[in-house]
């Protein structure tokens, strides 16, 4: 009973955020939500299925560009669904490589996909607008526009695009967490974990290893696609640069910091990695430690990079199960 009460309080608090907080926090929150969704997907792929991927940014980009392109042509809700499916198809298409190539070779092969993606997004100017980017059509749901055009005011706060997107983000994050939790504890989740721990044992238990590896890539890419759609909506305009190797590494770091294989951990890692630089940057003026950009000292951007690098090293050396491991102190496993 108290669990439900707690959940209800959290929901109410999250729902009230747009009323109290200014645009910067909403923007930061939306980026974090987009990252959470995509990171859950990568956590399933890396942590549960044991497949190292540096290609996540590519699939995020497919979702983002897919939505931007389709939402001009079909209703945005359909465009969202289609973009997610498109990312899933892209993941499935990569699976011949994912199924054949193992471990670290897979990680590095997937790196190739990011570079290939960058090349395509830069050059397919008809769809992506090339390096200048493309505007993302606003979301709308059954005629309700996610823009500021209707002049909606709640409790004296004008509800513009960010405020409305906030709720879309909350719903998508909740669905993603719920699906992820269910999946991990189910037949496919067990199959993936067995593939991770021993492909031979998985196969002799009747699990089609190649198919499940492909499925893991597909599901993880669909998560990435959904995260991409939300990210595109939050940005309003997307450029290829945003979906490069650095983003892929960011996702991997979110998963590692959160604790690979933990859905909740991935979410926590995503908030840490996404929000930290934005918040540090926001307050760089008032934090005495940090120098102004270009003055030669340690600026906010650099400080957050350093913190982030140090976090990776610290987590791997001292807390291998990540944030999730710190919360649930489990019995030591051989």
């Amino acid at each position: 009973m108290s669990r439900w009460l707690g959940a209800a309080v959290v929901v109410v608090l999250l729902a009230a955020v747009p009323i109290w907080f200014e645009a910067f926090w909403l923007q930061t929150g939306l980026f974090a939500m987009a990252a959470i969704i995509a990171a859950i997907g990568l956590s399933i792929l890396v942590g549960i299925a044991g497949q190292l991927s540096l290609a996540h940014a590519f699939f995020v980009a497919i979702g983002a560009y897919g939505y931007a392109y389709l939402a001009d042509r079909i209703p945005p809700l359909l465009a969202l669904v289609a973009a997610v499916l498109l990312a899933g198809v892209a993941g499935a298409l990569f699976s011949p490589i994912a199924g054949r190539v193992r471990g670290i070779y897979l990680g590095l092969a997937s790196l190739g996909l990011v570079f290939l993606g960058q090349h395509i997004f830069q050059n397919a100017t008809g769809i992506t607008g090339g390096y200048r980017g493309v505007a993302v059509p606003p979301f709308s749901l059954f005629g309700f526009e996610f823009t500021g055009a209707d002049g909606l005011v709640v409790l004296g706060v004008p509800y513009g695009p960010l405020e409305k997107l906030w709720y879309l983000g909350l719903v998508l994050v909740a669905l993603s967490l719920w699906y992820g939790h269910n999946l991990v504890r189910s037949r496919p989740g067990r199959a993936l974990a067995t593939v991770r721990d021993s492909e031979v044992a998985a196969a002799t238990n009747g699990i089609d290893v190649v198919r499940y590896k492909a499925a893991a890539f597909t599901v993880s890419s669909m998560y990435a696609g959904l995260g991409g759609v939300l990210m595109a909506l939050a940005f309003g305009r997307i450029v290829p640069e945003s979906f490069g190797l650095l983003l892929s590494i960011d996702f991997l770091v979110m998963v590692v910091i959160g604790g690979a294989g933990s859905v909740g951990g991935a979410a926590a890692g995503a908030v840490f990695v996404t929000a930290l630089p934005l918040i540090l940057n926001h307050y760089s003026g008032s934090l005495p430690l940090l120098a102004e950009p270009g003055s030669g000292g340690v600026g906010a951007a650099e400080f957050s990079r350093l913190l982030y690098g140090a976090a990776i090293v610290a987590v791997l050396l001292f807390a291998r199960d990540g944030l999730a491991g710190l919360v649930h102190r489990k019995e030591r496993v051989v």
Binding site: S186, R187, R190, A191, T194, G206
Partner: peptide, 11 residues
């Protein structure tokens, strides 16, 4: 895990 082949539910 061993019930995998006997079960049907999926993603």
């Amino acid at each position: 895990v061993a019930r995998h082949r006997l079960m049907r539910s999926g993603f």
